[in-house]
């Protein structure tokens, strides 16, 4: 078993879009490598070298008998934190580069 990889919790939190406090960051910097050290026991297991790919089958439903337009709109919109005029309100996605 190795010492485990270097884990950059800050970068992972950024990738996962989760804000994490400094206190929790310090805790995770210990806990995540501990958990990884535990799961690394599988790295010595002999497994087939070919990648396992599942048997492919079409799981999509046939596109038929659509419901009436707007039948569920209100119910789905109601779940969103902010709506306006039958739309979900989203923050501006594209912004001018800030200097």
């Amino acid at each position: 078993m190795t010492d485990g990889p270097k884990v950059d919790i800050k970068a992972l939190a950024d990738l996962a879009r989760v804000e994490i406090s400094d206190v929790e960051m310090a805790k995770l910097e210990k806990e995540i490598p501990d958990i990884l050290k535990f799961v690394e026991q599988i790295q010595g297991v002999a497994t087939d070298t070919k990648p396992v790919s599942p048997e492919l089958r079409n799981v999509m439903r046939t596109d038929e008998h659509p419901h009436a337009t707007g039948e569920y709109t209100e119910r789905i919109l109601k779940a969103a934190p902010a709506q306006k005029d039958n739309r979900v309100v989203v923050k501006q996605v594209v912004t001018r580069k800030q200097k």
């Binding site: 919790i9 992972l12 939190a13 996962a16 989760v18 804000e19 995540i32």
Partner: peptide, 16 residues
Amino acid sequence: SRGQGFGPETRRRIIL
């Protein structure tokens, strides 16, 4: 939203 909405174990597993 995710930082305040999720609890510590959920955040831990997301990071992992």
